[in-house]
Design a protein around this nucleic acid. Structure first.
Length: 243
DNA sequence: AACGTCGTCAACCGCCTGGCC
DNA sequence: GGGCCAGGCGGTTGACGACGT
């Protein structure tokens, strides 16, 4: 009998796209009841939706603090970096982007990954045919060779390897492997840094205003001092000031 | 204009977790 | 401790519009 009643209730439930009237009703009842007890809201409002559906509609679409519209370049950088760091922790990533939902972040990442996969596929095809496209590292090395003796990517790499205690290095810290990063002193620091700095703040660096959301702000600046006995390196920039 | 393909986004589903009794 | 329930989360699907042919 109970299951029969449940079936009848389920059949009466609406699914699919929300109507404007439903939205208005939901907003009214969330205003009264607050953002909880979604089953009660669903029943009290007379909406033929279940509590989960109401909650989702509110969180992903109706919440007044939501930012509607396309993901901008700054947000894109944050999403991609944090996805590299945390993996598919969509809600965790979304919390660092005010006004964005986990659903938006997830959808964005998926379409981005699809594009990336396509690009890689094409790259592989080109490689098979013997055509290669230059990597950022190629440019770094070229530039270093031409402009200054102090900046040599190979040299920098080995210093960074030593500093982080890893065998492979990337100029993009977020692409470091989990194990390499977890074993370094920077792991805890980075987590704290991200938590503390992903609100858009303006800071002064070398007399210039910089946003803490600017991806360049995340990259280390390596100060290398050399004497007869040893070579020491210290990386600077707010993210890299461990001490 | 008609059709097919692709990308985006909203919504649903199932599993998991935490709180309460 | 165990069952129940509400809510959170990530994966998946389907609708729809944009764009190309």
């Amino acid at each position: 009998m109970a299951s029969y009643r449940r079936n009848m209730e389920d059949e009466a439930l609406r699914k699919g796209t929300w109507l404007e009237e439903e939205d208005e009703l939901l907003v009214t009842f969330v205003t009264i009841f607050g953002e909880r007890r979604w089953d009660s809201i669903a029943k009290a409002s007379g909406l033929r939706r279940n509590g989960k559906s109401c909650r989702l509609r509110w969180l992903n679409y109706l919440r007044p603090d939501l930012k509607h519209g396309r993901i901008n370049a700054e947000e894109e950088q944050i999403i991609l970096h944090l996805h590299q760091c945390w993996g598919n922790k969509w809600s965790k990533i979304a919390r660092k982007l005010p006004g964005r939902t986990d659903n938006e972040v997830k959808n964005y990442c998926r379409s981005h990954q699809r594009k990336k996969a396509l690009a890689e596929e094409q790259e592989n095809l080109q490689t098979e045919r013997g055509i290669t496209t230059p990597t950022p590292q190629d440019f770094l090395t070229q530039e270093a060779d031409q402009s200054t003796k102090t900046w040599n990517f190979e040299y920098e790499s080995s210093v960074i390897e030593k500093k982080l205690g890893i065998s492979e290095v990337s100029t993009d810290i977020f692409t470091l492997s989990d194990s390499a990063f977890a074993s370094s002193q920077y792991e805890t620091h980075l987590t704290d840094w991200i938590s503390g700095n992903l609100d858009n703040q303006t800071v002064m660096i070398d007399g210039e205003e910089c946003s803490t959301l600017d991806p360049l702000f995340c990259y280390p600046t390596w100060n290398i001092s050399e004497n007869e006995n040893n070579v020491s390196a210290h990386c600077s920039g707010s993210l890299w000031d461990v001490d």
